[in-house]
Amino acid sequence: MSTTESDAETVQITVNGDDRSVPHRYPLTDLLHDLNVDPESVSGVAVAINESVVRRQDWSDVTLAEGDTVEVITAQQGG
């Protein structure tokens, strides 16, 4: 059974608790754009993949793989 390359290259990840399909080796910065977070200009946002914080200077070096759990957080009102 053959699969198209695009099917084969799709991976399942979890982003802020929701399942999401993205291309294999999808850049983290592309995902952030999908979330309306501009990786160039945004402030007050942090990212963890599989419970490890990805430093901002490393965002552009990171791509996503099958099963990755991504958290993208910011500061909100709190006590």
């Binding site: 802020n16 979330l35 309306n36 977070v37 957080i73 910011t74 709190g78 006590g79």
Partner: peptide, 10 residues
């Protein structure tokens, strides 16, 4: 001033 850390609201 305290703030909470929460997922970004897409």
């Amino acid at each position: 001033v305290t703030v909470a850390i929460r997922r970004v609201n897409v």
